[in-house]
Simulated scan of single mutants.
Amino acid sequence: MRASALGVRWIKSSHSNAEGNCVEVAALDGGDVALRNSRDPEGPALVYTPAEIAAFLAGAKDGEFDHLL
Rank of each mutant, 00 (worst) to 15 (best):
A51T: 12
P50Y: 02
P41S: 10
I53M: 09
V25R: 07
D29E: 12
I53A: 01
R39S: 13
G30A: 00
T49H: 10
C22W: 05
V25T: 09
N21K: 03
D29W: 04
A27C: 02
A27N: 04
C22E: 05
P50L: 02
P50N: 04
N21P: 02
G31Y: 04
Y48S: 01
L28S: 04
A45E: 10
E42K: 04
I53K: 00
A51R: 09
V47N: 01
G43M: 12
E52T: 15
G31C: 01
N37Q: 10
V47Q: 01
E42C: 00
P41V: 14
A26N: 15
D32S: 12
T49S: 15
L35F: 13
G30H: 00
P41L: 05
D32T: 02
A45C: 14
L28Y: 05
L28N: 07
D32M: 01
A51K: 03
V47I: 15
E42L: 02
A45S: 13
P50A: 08
A34N: 13
G30M: 07
A51W: 08
D29I: 06
V33D: 02
G30R: 01
G43C: 09
A27L: 05
P41F: 14
G30C: 05
N21V: 01
L28W: 06
G31D: 03
D40L: 15
V33N: 00
E52L: 10
Y48W: 09
Y48Q: 00
N37E: 12
V23Y: 05
D40R: 13
V33H: 01
A51E: 15
L35S: 05
V25L: 14
R36Q: 10
P50W: 09
P44C: 11
D40F: 14
G30T: 04
C22V: 05
L46S: 07
G31S: 03
A26Q: 09
R36S: 08
A34Q: 14
D29K: 12
V25D: 03
D29Q: 09
V25I: 09
V23T: 09
P50S: 05
P41D: 11
L46G: 02
A54G: 05
E42D: 07
L46Q: 12
C22I: 03
A45I: 14
A51V: 12
E52Y: 11
A51D: 15
A26K: 09
P50K: 02
P41G: 12
A51Y: 09
G31E: 03
A26C: 11
E24K: 05
N21R: 05
R39I: 02
A45N: 14
V33E: 02
A45W: 14
L46H: 10
P44D: 15
S38L: 06
L35V: 12
P44M: 13
V33K: 03
E24W: 10
D40P: 00
L28R: 07
R39C: 06
